[in-house]
Amino acid sequence: MSDVKKFMFVNRKAPYGTIYALESLEVVLITAAFDQDVSLMFTDDGVYQLKKGQQTKGIETKNFSPTYRALEGYDVEKLYVDQESLQERGLTEDDLLVDVTVLSRAEVGALMDEQDVILSF
């Protein structure tokens, strides 16, 4: 695919309660495979997707959180987290399983303005 666009995936949903977070991640990987400019934004309950220490044995569901750490291998390096959403949930950057850039809401808004395609699931 010759035309490269800036894709942002906005994640507002927590993992496991619904399948959105997992299936969203599948789109992220494919979009990166098509050599697009990919960034991920985590806001509201979406920040829970990145919480360290997820143990899913008891709910008999695949723990897909290690995939966020593997994103770097697909050249997906732009991971952003909304600071206010972290704060509201009693979380800090240290609780997250991958390196992210923490942004204020104004910074998040400015970044959204730069995108060509914004997808949310």
């Binding site: 507002r12 806001t43 509201d44 909304d82 809401r105 104004a106 808004g109 959204m112």
Partner: peptide, 12 residues
């Protein structure tokens, strides 16, 4: 749901 509130606080 917080979507509208988040949007109002975030979007430029």
């Amino acid at each position: 749901d917080r979507a509208l509130e988040n949007c109002l606080n975030t979007a430029s």
